[in-house]
C-alpha cells in the first residue's frame, strides 16, 4: 500500500499491535524473564496490584498531563486524557521493570525534559504553564519536516502519543469516545445492523 516513507515501518509495527493480546505480545519484543519486583507468573487476575513504585517526578507528571491533554482533549465524545488516568498509566508504564517499558521510559523521560527546556527557552515557562497556543506552536514545530525540534523530539512525540492514546482508548471512557459499544451481555448476537449493512453496501 501507499504509505509515507518514514512512517511505513512504524505503521507496520503498529498494525501488528491490533486486535489481540497475542498480537500485542508479538510486537513487544520480550526478552527478560524472571524480573525482580515484577508481576510474576501467576498474579490474581481479578486484582490490579502494581508492585513497582511510580517514578515520574512532579515536573514530569505535570508536563505529561499537559501534553496528553493537548493530544487528547475533551470533546463531545469523552473527557480529556488526564481525566481518565492516562498520566497515572504512563507513570505506571515507564516505571515497570521490563525491557520494553524501560526502553520507553528513556525516550519519554528525555522527551519530557526536552519539552520543558524548549518551552522555557521559547516562552520562559515550562510546557505545562505555557498557553495552549504556545504549546500548539511548539508541537507543530516538532511535526514540521526539517526543523531542529523534529530532529530532537519527533520519535518521542510518536511514542508518547501512541502510549497516551493506547492508555486512553483502553478504558471504558475511551471505549465510549471511540464508539466501542461491546463488553455487554446479549441474549442473542444480532450481527451487522441494517445501518451497518447499508454503510458497507451490502443492503
Amino acid at each position: 500500500m501507499q504509505s509515507s516513507g518514514p512512517l511505513s515501518l512504524s505503521r507496520r509495527d503498529a498494525l501488528r499491535l491490533i486486535f489481540t493480546a497475542s498480537a500485542l505480545a508479538a510486537s513487544l519484543d520480550i526478552t527478560a524473564f524472571g524480573v525482580e519486583g515484577g508481576l510474576g507468573a501467576d498474579p490474581d487476575l481479578l486484582k490490579k496490584e502494581i508492585p513497582w513504585p511510580r517514578t515520574f517526578s512532579a515536573a514530569e507528571k505535570k508536563a505529561a498531563a499537559a501534553l496528553a491533554d493537548l493530544l487528547i482533549p475533551a470533546d463531545e465524545h469523552g473527557p480529556a486524557a488526564s481525566a481518565v488516568g492516562v498520566v497515572d498509566f504512563l507513570d505506571e508504564w515507564i516505571s515497570a521493570p521490563y525491557d520494553t517499558q524501560e526502553r520507553d521510559a528513556k525516550v519519554i523521560r528525555a522527551g519530557l525534559a526536552w519539552l520543558d527546556a524548549e518551552s522555557t527557552k521559547r516562552f520562559a515557562k515550562p510546557f505545562a504553564d505555557a498557553a495552549v497556543a504556545e504549546q500548539t506552536a511548539l508541537v507543530d514545530d516538532v511535526l514540521k519536516e526539517g526543523t531542529e525540534a523534529r530532529k530532537k523530539a519527533y520519535s518521542f512525540w510518536r511514542l508518547f502519543r501512541d502510549r497516551a492514546a493506547g492508555g486512553y482508548y483502553s478504558t471504558p471512557e475511551g471505549w465510549r469516545a471511540l464508539g466501542y459499544t461491546g463488553n455487554a451481555p446479549l441474549s442473542e448476537f444480532p450481527g451487522a445492523t441494517p445501518e451497518a449493512l447499508k454503510h458497507v453496501g451490502l443492503a
Partner: peptide, 19 residues
C-alpha cells in the same frame, strides 16, 4: 476492562499472551 489490569493488560515475559 484493560484499565483493570497492570500495564493495560499488555504482555510481559511471564504472561506472553497478556495479563
Amino acid at each position: 476492562s484493560f484499565a483493570d489490569a497492570p500495564l493495560r493488560g499488555s504482555a510481559y515475559p511471564q504472561k506472553p499472551n497478556g495479563y
